[in-house]
């Protein structure tokens, strides 16, 4: 992979430096996934796990 990129890189990057490639939809999707993941983790750990009775402390 590194080799082919080294070969292709000069020709690929000559133009607009990939600026026309703007995957805003993918960015949005990943943003939504990320938010779900963070909210789910906060809920599972801080509310469900630490919020329960009889937390094991030793």
């Amino acid at each position: 992979m590194g080799q082919s990129e080294a070969v292709n890189a000069p020709t690929d990057d000559v133009g607009g430096d990939g600026e026309e490639f703007d995957p805003i939809g993918t960015l949005t999707l990943i943003g939504i996934y990320f938010t779900i993941l963070v909210l789910a983790w906060v809920y599972i750990y801080f509310i469900e796990f630490l919020g329960r009775d009889l937390v094991v402390v030793g």
Binding site: L27, I30, V55, G58
Partner: peptide, 28 residues
């Protein structure tokens, strides 16, 4: 951006577990 976010996520997961052990004192 999403490389950075995924690293933040990993650090946050480790961070919360560390917090659980140090703060509320969760033990095994």
């Amino acid at each position: 951006l999403w490389l950075a976010l995924s690293i933040v996520l990993i650090l946050a997961l480790i961070g919360t577990v560390t917090y659980g052990a140090v703060g509320p004192g969760v033990a095994m």
